[in-house]
Design a protein around this nucleic acid. Sequence first.
DNA 1: TTGTAGGCGTTATCAG
DNA 2: CTGATAACGCCTACAA
Lengths: 339, 339
Amino acid sequence: MASNITIDDIADALGVSKTTVSRAISGKGRISEATREKVRAYIEEHNYRPNIYARGLAQSRTYNIGVVLPGEYGVVDLPFFQECLAGMTRVTAPAGIDVMVTIMEDGDITNLQRIVEHHKVDGIILTRTMIEDRAAAYLQETGFPFVSIGTSDDPDRICIDQDNLGGCLELTEKLLGAGLHRLALIGGNESHVITRTRRRAFEKAHEKLGLQPDPDLIYMNVLDPARVDWAVRRIMDQQADCIVCMSDRLAGNILMRCSSLEIRIPEDIRIASYYDSSLLENAVPRVSSVGFNERQLGAEAARLLLRRVEGEPVESRILSNYRIYIRQSTQLAEDCRSS
Amino acid sequence: MASNITIDDIADALGVSKTTVSRAISGKGRISEATREKVRAYIEEHNYRPNIYARGLAQSRTYNIGVVLPGEYGVVDLPFFQECLAGMTRVTAPAGIDVMVTIMEDGDITNLQRIVEHHKVDGIILTRTMIEDRAAAYLQETGFPFVSIGTSDDPDRICIDQDNLGGCLELTEKLLGAGLHRLALIGGNESHVITRTRRRAFEKAHEKLGLQPDPDLIYMNVLDPARVDWAVRRIMDQQADCIVCMSDRLAGNILMRCSSLEIRIPEDIRIASYYDSSLLENAVPRVSSVGFNERQLGAEAARLLLRRVEGEPVESRILSNYRIYIRQSTQLAEDCRSS
DNA sequence: TTGTAGGCGTTATCAG
DNA sequence: CTGATAACGCCTACAA
């Protein structure tokens, strides 16, 4: 039974003032152990639950945080965001805080504005950083507490990220180290910060090993199947050793394209992905990749935001939570033949 | 700028009472066009936004709805839920209502209870129906407004569903009609209503065509890779014509298993899926399946709930929104050879 | 058409 | 240690 009793009812029933009850609940202010216990027992028995929004009204808080999810079809279904969400609720729920979602489609921040201006949440988590980040810009100029998942140049902005640079770098080094020197890179939308980070990792790995990436082998903004097809054909002509895909989705697409073009993996060319996910779990052959722990990321983002809402000072942070998976898709052709 | 002005500030500035301002905003009560316009202009200029929770406190409403998402790993990332969510917000946002998510893991309803008992939302959407539905039972006995996505035997429960029965039935009929008479069925968790519905569709299709499904070819509760492997091997021995998978995920798994067992699709056996999604979009070969429109489903669920919260009478409903995709994975072996 | 006063459920202030 | 009393921001009889 969801009780509809109020703090007044309790006060009446117990013959004390509501102030006392409130104190017994919040633990603030001095109060005798006896009355505290009396109140506790009554609450327990009648299953009383405070009205959070009434409390919020008195404290200028809502006990809610907002999460901005991208809404574009074909992106929205990446497991990433849902895992993050799960991580966040793990942190917020025990603190009695809840998560409100709002979906942002192609730069339209009206939904975000609504929940902020209507005082529906105490803070915001942005689940993706953009080069032109209207959401972040808006929050920043209004001074509303928020943290972004991702990375930004802006030092004033609180960001939390996975070690994309480190992870992608290490995977790339492994590939280069295994003798795959002519690496092609296929990437997506360059207006996402993450895309640029991955590209930088790609280049840095070469640098570290004293190699030069071939600029002709780099294909960015590959967003539709037609362009995937075109890129794959060209790459095959260019005699690359391996195709590095910036995302799991891209990797899946390319795998399919290769199959229909009768390109064998890993015999004819190798494939690796800068992102591991369940989208790839059924891929044949299994794709080498770098995987992260999104739940942890979401959880950490929530922790940061909660602290920030409390007014504590917080700092941007990068989680070192990646893991490299070397799988069949990048075995050298020779290795395969022998096995 | 997120204003922090209140209705009192406006009243003072305009030299009217806050009642008048309130009326001008809500449109309730008679008020002169002149003052209404005056208030509107002031609000516009100062970008005033009412505090929704204060309003809610006065009206015993929250202008929020809650959505319960499953949290089990490996399920949480199905595109289904995210698409539903997107559909819901499309409906709620224009009504000034927001969506709060709560994650439910293996039957633990404490998170749900929290947001209900703390009066954080006006209603709940359950995104999945279960055979033992603790969430639904809880909501029902407390009388809290909710709707479920899915189907239930309970006539008192408001449900909204896709036409899973019709869709799966039609796909199965198509397969049987194409001469694939020995159909194997691989299904997941039988404690989900959806699983039973799909099985019923499978059997009904046979019935309609005067055929009998072979009980030995039906494999339920296939939840882990080991069991998938076992089922596939047995099915091959049993000389089935086609494997019907109850979910996109299962289909992907089976495709992979077949590949490593060097079973060719569709030459050696055909494969079909009772659910289409982006998980299958990169599958090779493309898998025949039945697809639904989850955004529409989510939107409709939200509409129903909002009506219900308003106290209007609502009824359960099934959307007829499926589409059959016949693709390469179920071409008869002969067709393939000739092509 | 407009204003006054009280209430929604809770916390905070300031006395006792 | 406890209790009035006044906020918090908004709505809504009831009155004018």
